[in-house]
Simulated assay, not measured.
Amino acid sequence: MAPVDWMHLLHQAFFGAVAAAGFGVLFNFGLKALAWCAAAGALALCVRTLGLDQHWSLEAASFVAAVSASICANLFRRPLGPRGNAVALAGCIPMVPGAFFGQAILGALAVTTPHPENAAVILTAIEYLLRVLFTLAAIGAGLAIPAYLLKHREF
């Protein structure tokens, strides 16, 4: 096991909290729910960072982070009420790999030029696109499985 770099972990937690609270604002949550969004984002990014530091794949680390955010949102069902799953979603949105998606789009645009450079551009674009799709699927499954297994009859 690799030692934990606490400053890197705190950095990820802080910016995960800021990004998740920002998505909570976009989802039109109240001020009290924004704090829960920030906590979910900090938790999700911490868990994903710990997984990546242990040399897990991005998809596996994102899945475990989404599961942990979803379980915590369901454990705090009483203060969150019916918006618990939405809070978990807002906490997981900062884990979407935007840089990979940008590279996939740029690779797809490079393929459409009149004289594409080589086949490596196509393969790289497909690789990045697949990583984005698998990571999104892992986050979605990580959010859905605990929400389904821990659902309450009042929802």
Rank of each mutant, 00 (worst) to 15 (best):
A137C: 13
G41E: 00
A69D: 06
M95T: 04
E59P: 07
L149M: 10
M1L: 14
F155H: 15
L129V: 04
L10S: 11
F29Y: 11
A86Q: 13
L26D: 04
H8I: 08
I105E: 01
G140K: 08
T113R: 15
H55V: 09
A2T: 13
I105A: 10
V111D: 14
V64E: 06
R78G: 05
G84W: 12
A19E: 06
L31P: 06
D5G: 02
I93Y: 06
S62C: 04
G24S: 04
A125Q: 01
C72A: 15
L89I: 09
G24E: 07
P114V: 08
S57I: 02
E59W: 07
G107D: 03
L123P: 01
T112E: 12
A35M: 12
V111H: 11
R48A: 09
A110M: 00
G140D: 10
R48K: 05
A90G: 08
L26M: 12
W56C: 07
F155R: 13
A119E: 15
K151G: 10
A21D: 08
N118K: 03
L149C: 08
A20S: 09
S57W: 09
L89Y: 09
A19R: 09
P97G: 05
G30D: 14
A44F: 06
A138I: 04
T135E: 05
R131A: 09
A104T: 01
L143T: 02
A13Q: 02
N85V: 12
A35V: 12
L149S: 05
D53C: 05
K151E: 15
A144E: 00
G91N: 06
I71K: 06
V121E: 10
A69R: 03
T135K: 11
V132K: 08
A60T: 05
F155G: 12
A86K: 11
H115K: 13
F63R: 08
A2C: 10
A44S: 07
D53E: 15
V96N: 02
W6P: 02
P116L: 03
A120N: 12
S68R: 00
T124A: 15
N28R: 15
V67E: 03
L123F: 14
I126H: 01
A2S: 12
R77C: 10
R83H: 13
A110T: 10
C92W: 02
A73E: 03
A104Y: 09
G24C: 06
A66C: 00
V132Y: 02
